[in-house]
Simulated scan of single mutants.
Amino acid sequence: MSEVSLPLVRATDLAKTFDVSAPWLNRVIERKPRMLLQAVNGVSFDIERGKTLALVGESGCGKSTVARLLVGLYEPTRGGFSFDGVDAHAAFKTAEGRKLRRRVQMVFQDPYASLNPRWTVGDIIAEPLREHEILSDDSAIEQRVSELLQSVGLSALDRIKFPHQFSGGQRQRISIARALATQPEFLVCDEPTSALDVSVQAQVLNIMKDLQRKHGLTYLFISHNLAVVRHVSDQVGVMYLGGLVELADKHTLFDTPRHPYTRMLLDAIPKMHDTGKARTAVAGEVPNPLNPPSGCAFHPRCPHANARCSSEKPVMKPIGGIRVACHAVEEGRI
């Protein structure tokens, strides 16, 4: 394979397990076993340079854990993540990891929690410039902060204000400006518009698309809103209980979804032209991740499940131009 065709981002069999046990003394006295939560279990995907992969799924499926694994906030229990051909998790621990962190940045979900309320907007955006020693001269930093604010549709004069003086949408623009300060190539966006009104969501998403075109940014975009995903993504990965169940390009996934869970998610979306038709609610409850079902994790909620589904875990396989983990699709039953 030539260097040119290598994806910028490659996650291979990523897994993360958290120990959620009670304290040791409680376990001894109450005779309780250790409790392990498999938040992410064997997720693999590639993201081409300049493209957007969206991860979707219900709350608690492991999307945000994947995001934190990719920026080095968590260390994987198993598997790995390579960035531009380099083992990122090994690099994060070395002196060279500082350079890598400049190239990989994150926009967090809650703009009310991710900005320091005691700092001015200018100091917040200047922090990465100073921390990574990109600029040291105060006037150059001030000039760069002004440029970054203007690039996300805010005024250069906003740098003297504090976060509480801005609306949610404006705060998220400040978060994006801070993430862009190091001129990254890869942005991990963890539900960056979920806390915003619909009209403001559109403004922020359009800014993100414009920035992608202008700077050639690569995005991992995490969301549970399929309408947002349709607007921003090139490829879509559907997650369920810590694993990927379907991965396809956007048009294929929305036009011809294969996995029963993907179909269920899409059926639940209200459609403009089906005003008289009842929406199909997503059936059943998400299983307890501390005690996941045997076989396919989705089988208790799946209308196509059989004995094989309840005993044998499906693996992601390329079927008809997409990757899907489903015995029913593999066997041609749906």
Rank of each mutant, 00 (worst) to 15 (best):
A11C: 14
A15R: 06
V20P: 00
V20A: 05
W24S: 02
N26Q: 15
R27D: 11
I29V: 15
L37T: 04
A39C: 00
V43M: 11
F45R: 01
R49G: 12
K51Q: 05
A54T: 11
A54K: 08
A54W: 10
L55W: 02
V56Q: 08
E58Y: 11
G60R: 04
G62M: 00
S64N: 05
A67Y: 11
V71G: 07
E75N: 15
P76Q: 05
R78F: 04
F81N: 08
F83L: 07
G85Y: 03
A88F: 07
F92R: 11
E96K: 15
L100K: 08
R101Q: 06
L115A: 07
R118S: 13
I124F: 01
A126R: 10
A126T: 05
R130L: 09
E133T: 10
D137Y: 00
D138Y: 14
S139Y: 10
Q143C: 15
V145E: 10
V152P: 02
G153M: 09
A156F: 06
R159T: 12
F162L: 13
P163F: 04
F166K: 07
G168S: 04
F186S: 05
L187S: 01
V188M: 01
T193I: 13
A195D: 03
D197W: 12
V204N: 02
N206S: 07
D210F: 03
L211M: 01
Q212T: 09
H215Y: 15
F221K: 03
V232R: 09
Q235W: 11
G237R: 14
V238W: 03
M239L: 09
E246F: 05
P257F: 03
R258V: 09
T262A: 07
L266F: 01
G276S: 15
A283E: 15
G284E: 08
H299W: 13
A305M: 04
R308F: 07
K313S: 11
V324S: 06
A328K: 07
E331P: 08
E331I: 13
